[in-house]
Design a protein around this nucleic acid. Structure first.
Lengths: 141, 141
DNA sequence: TATTGTTATACTCTATAACTATA
DNA sequence: TATAGTTATAGAGTATAACAATA
């Protein structure tokens, strides 16, 4: 019995919550530097590898379809994405990232890599590997 | 030399980011159940132990003072907080949580404890302790 | 009829700039 | 003059409900 509740549980919960806010603060700062919101960062993260329909985006982002309409419209107005009507189904629209959108996305990704790395750079190699292992277990649930 | 960059760095960065989104999703879901935003959750987390001035709140929450005016106004309208003018300085307003606000805050906190714990309940006791230790190191930076 | 997406509407959240009241 | 807070304004982001176009 190694996975029973223990007296350390409130500590690990608090630590996890604090850690999530710390990471989100980093992401928020970087996003703001590129005039992006966190949702837009997630949007571009998806568009990097996919050309989804509006409803798929809504599902991925856990938003109402009407919210996605606005999100995509604002990004399109800035020339970061493009709406492409489906050829097979006249009701469907595919969202595609533009060259400019991809450039910004790549830049943001590099900056995130850099900044988040700063948070763990003080850890030993062993601790970093150990942390990644346990975090992966948590995410696997 | 144990803290040099390694080939695992992109993995730990990605894991950290994903983990932060997973935790935030849990918090967001709980907050929504109580008609709260994440910022309001943070607000009540502060008011639980403090009776800050508006400018102090702005600093804690990293918001403009005008944003805090609206945030507090909406919470006050719902009877969750109260503005108390300072007796020493006529310009200053203290923000105080109400009984109702405290009840909701306690309920939310218990639910967060519960839900986040579900994420780590599959881990061994040793892994949980180890994770909390390393995460604390990261937060200490 | 059902599905995809948009529009109309209303609210929260945020910042900037201008303002009021107090120090 | 300086500081604490509010107001006016504008825009992003969100959901609900009603709608149009297509299937």
């Amino acid at each position: 019995m190694t996975n029973n509740p223990s007296s350390n549980d409130p500590i690990i919960v608090d630590t996890l919550v604090q850690l999530s806010f710390a990471i989100q603060a980093v992401l928020l700062r970087i996003a703001a530097q590129h005039d992006l919101s966190l949702v837009q960062m997630r949007l571009f993260g998806i568009l990097r590898d996919h050309e989804p329909e509006m409803l798929e985006l809504a599902r991925y982002l856990n938003l109402d379809k009407s919210s996605v309409t606005g999100l995509v419209a604002r990004a399109e107005r800035r020339g970061l994405v493009q709406r492409i009507p489906s050829l097979e189904d006249g009701r469907v629209v595919h969202v595609v990232i533009t060259l400019l959108g991809r450039q910004i996305t790549d830049e943001v990704a590099a900056q995130v890599e850099n900044e988040v790395l700063k948070l763990v750079i003080g850890l030993s190699e062993a601790d970093r590997i150990e942390f990644a292992r346990i975090a992966t277990l948590i995410l696997a649930r």
